[in-house]
């Protein structure tokens, strides 16, 4: 089951079929969501129009977390089953997740200023997001620091798993720290008590953000797979010019190893 989707060529074919639809869903739900969030939804009785920031803040925070879940899941798959696709997915997810985590911090700060009267409060949620942002930065920095693509992907996968184990621990410790130092969090967010006139735009924005994430993730995976293909083709081209002996080493030999592994499982 996993293998069918893990085949890169099959993935590209599937992605090409889905991407036009995802594009339409993304565009449509963003249009409707933004219209409702900015125009038809009512201002909050306490927070006034500043509550409209929630419609972009909450989905951004969710995408930041979700991006790390995808990153960790794909890293796990890439370490255990050595799927080239999982590897590309992990790398592709990082910049999207990091961007949304950064946006969640920024919009949280913009929302916080009128509510708290200050740009930044060491609220448990914001602090956890900040640490998550650092985890993303470390992951991407490690990717760019190691030149060999195969080694970089494995090292980054190890880091992603270590980070994934730590995320709940960090979340727990930050909540603990927060209750020690400032008992009540002021930010009011979501919850079942929210008016349905606010729930609808929020839900549609969530759809928009998720569809957007899926779409950009697929684009980035396609780009990564194409980049690898170019690398292999260039290598083979160079090897052919040097003669058949040189061809046995490098990417070709590595792919041989990969083929053996895929047959074995």
């Amino acid at each position: 089951m996993m293998h069918r989707f893990a085949n890169p060529t099959r993935f590209v074919r599937l992605a090409d079929r889905m991407l036009p639809w995802l594009f339409i869903v993304t565009l449509g739900s963003f249009a409707v969501g933004l219209y409702m969030a900015l125009i038809t939804s009512p201002p909050d009785y306490q927070q006034g129009d500043s509550v409209r920031i929630m419609y972009v803040h909450a989905p951004s925070a969710w995408m930041g977390l979700f991006g790390y879940m995808v990153l960790a899941g794909a890293s796990f798959a890439s370490l255990v089953w050595r799927h080239p696709l999982a590897d590309a997915a992990a790398k592709a997810s990082a910049p999207i997740g990091a961007a949304f985590t950064g946006l969640a911090l920024l919009t949280g700060s913009l929302w916080g200023q009128p509510m708290w009267g200050t740009w930044w409060v060491w609220d448990a949620r914001l602090t956890s997001m900040l640490v998550l942002f650092f985890l993303y930065l470390g992951y991407m920095a490690l990717w760019s620091a190691i030149e060999d693509r195969q080694k970089a992907s494995k090292a980054a996968a190890i880091l992603a798993l270590v980070g994934a184990i730590n995320v709940p621990i960090i979340k727990f410790s930050v909540d603990w720290w927060n209750t020690l130092h400032q008992p009540a969090s002021i930010m009011r967010q979501g919850g079942p008590s929210m008016d349905s006139a606010m729930l609808w735009p929020l839900g549609i924005m969530f759809v928009a953000f998720n569809a957007y994430y899926a779409m950009v993730l697929m684009w980035r995976i396609k780009a990564e797979l194409a980049a690898r293909k170019i690398e292999t083709l260039r290598y083979n081209q160079a090897a052919r010019q040097e003669g058949p002996a040189a061809r046995q080493e490098g990417p070709a030999a590595r792919q041989e190893g990969q083929a053996v592994l895929e047959e074995g499982s």
Partner: peptide, 12 residues
């Protein structure tokens, strides 16, 4: 950069 975020719980 990789390690300091992981030190957060120990510090707290």
């Amino acid at each position: 950069l990789l390690i300091l975020p992981l030190y957060v719980p120990t510090l707290i």
